[in-house]
């Protein structure tokens, strides 16, 4: 038994039960975001896959692994997308090291 149940992804729509207008607004927006636009659906799926790893959402990882495969992405492309997420997350942690160094400079002799 894990904390997350993969079957819950299929119940995402239930989030609208006590706030239907907000849910409708969100899902309408969500649908428009992922429609083909200046970026292809395939590019959007790869971005979503990378972000899913950055925010560590297991539902999103399942959903956008499937969506990426169904938009013709190879495992190599998908793995590179995850590395992009990792690099940005890692870089974000590391660049805060400058803040650490500046503050350390401020309070150190």
């Amino acid at each position: 038994m894990t904390y997350y149940d993969p079957a819950d992804l299929g119940k995402f729509g239930d989030i609208g039960k006590d706030a239907p207008e907000l849910a409708k607004a969100f899902f309408d927006y969500y649908g428009k975001v992922f429609a083909e636009g200046e970026l292809t659906k395939r590019e959007k799926n790869l971005i979503a896959l990378a972000v899913a790893h950055a925010v560590q959402c297991p539902y999103c990882i399942d959903a956008y692994t499937g969506a990426s495969l169904e938009s013709g992405c190879s495992r190599g492309e998908m793995t590179e997308a995850v590395h992009v997420a990792a690099a940005i997350k890692g870089g974000a942690a590391l660049v805060h090291g400058i803040q650490m160094r500046k503050h350390a400079d401020r309070i150190s002799m």
């Binding site: 292809t40 395939r42 499937g66 495969l69 169904e70 938009s71 013709g72």
Partner: peptide
């Protein structure tokens, strides 16, 4: 055809790729 339990990607975009 897909290499797994998922649907094809879309014929025209697949052809271009």
């Amino acid at each position: 055809n897909p290499v797994g339990a998922f649907l094809p990607s879309g014929q025209s975009s697949a052809e271009a790729r």
